[in-house]
């Protein structure tokens, strides 16, 4: 068996195959639901209802999508430059940490704290990614390993801080930080519901990233370095500097996920701030084919499955793990579908 490139895939092929991938995903999911003793169609109905079936459900899905848009963008930006940032989780926590530090330690008015926490978080996230990138450009150390390991370093560091200097004295002994003041929180987008301005910032960020990638010299440089670093270097593109800029952008975006979760939703810092948003960001970015506007759609899709599965699980008694399986299948089938829009399989 071998693959043969298709230069101009037909519309039917480029649209039909991703749809087929989704169908295949739900067939696998349906089979598993049957194994759990539930009616597959009912199960999916409940997932959809749980995700978008009411105003509350829809807003909850968008709420869950917010950090995923940020981490998805972070991954998409980095992967474009072939910078394999697996450490969005660490950058997210770095952003959350700085948000808490600024929000609780600086006695400033709320309207000043809100942007200040955001900027501080972005810098922190960028700096966290800078180390692995400099190791890569200077010494050739594989950033997959270093960024991945940084996730654990950051989590353990925060754990130490939450048990020590940052521990909330009024926290009944729980490892959590003090909360930032009410007036330093991101305002609600919809009164009375949990959706906050972090979602707006996320959409805005996606648009900004899209503009940077398609309209600026930096975007051109990032794409050139990602597609062929050797040719980029020969043409005079400063590859090392582009990598550093990419790292600052990517780390900063991931950190905004931590900022928006703390300042928009939780108010304080705990060790369960992120149920793996950093890692899920990779799935989000891949499903979006690294397109920043596509990240919005895929983040909402992924969030919908998680939120929907929560609701479904309560009603149909199918474990929520089915959400993880659905996502994993969606990713695998989608990657296969994308491969098949670009290549044809031939025998011999």
């Amino acid at each position: 068996m071998r693959l043969e490139a298709i230069e101009n895939p037909t519309l039917a092929r480029s649209l039909g195959l991703p749809v087929l991938a989704l169908v295949a995903t739900f067939m696998v999911g349906g089979f598993l639901a049957m194994l759990a003793g539930a009616n597959p169609l009912l199960t999916f109905g409940l997932i959809v209802k749980g995700a978008v079936g009411s105003k509350f459900a829809l807003l909850e899905t968008l709420n869950r999508a917010t950090p995923l848009i940020f981490t998805g963008l972070a991954v998409a930006v980095a992967f474009r430059a072939k910078l394999w940032n697996i450490g969005a989780e660490a950058q997210l926590y770095a952003g959350a940490l700085v948000t808490i530090l600024i929000g609780t330690k600086l006695a400033l008015p709320g309207p000043l704290l809100i942007p200040l926490m955001g900027i501080g978080a972005m810098i922190a996230g960028g700096v966290v990614l800078l180390g692995p990138v400099l190791l890569k450009t200077r010494l050739g150390v594989d950033e997959v390993v270093t960024t991945l390991l940084f996730n654990f370093i950051m989590l353990l560091l925060i754990s130490m801080l939450l048990e020590g200097p940052l521990k909330d004295p009024m926290g009944m002994g729980w490892p959590k930080s003090e909360a930032i003041p009410r007036n330093a929180r991101l305002p609600r987008l919809v009164e009375g519901l949990r959706l906050h301005w972090g979602f707006g910032i996320a959409i805005l960020s996606a648009v900004v990233v899209w503009v940077v990638q398609t309209r600026t010299t930096l975007g051109y440089e990032i794409r050139a370095v990602g597609l062929n670093a050797e040719a980029a270097r020969f043409a005079g593109i400063p590859v090392g500097a582009v990598m550093v800029k990419t790292a600052l952008l990517s780390g900063g975006l991931a950190a905004l996920a931590g900022y928006s979760e703390v300042a928009g939703l939780k108010g304080n810092l705990t060790l369960d701030l992120s149920p793996g948003f950093g890692y899920t960001g990779i799935v989000v970015a891949m499903l979006a084919l690294l397109n920043p506007l596509g990240v919005i759609v895929s983040a909402i899709f992924v969030a919908g499955i998680f939120v929907g599965a929560d609701g479904m699980s309560r009603a149909a008694e199918v474990p929520t793990y089915i959400a993880d399986i659905l996502l994993a299948c969606a990713l695998l089938f989608m990657v296969l579908a994308i491969l098949l829009t670009k290549f044809r399989v031939r025998k011999g």
Binding site: Y220, R223, A224, L227, N228, E230, A231, A232, F234
Partner: peptide, 13 residues
């Protein structure tokens, strides 16, 4: 192929 051009860039790029 490797140094002179970027294969997946357009002629313009």
């Amino acid at each position: 192929h490797r140094t002179g051009t970027i294969a997946d860039f357009t002629l313009t790029e």
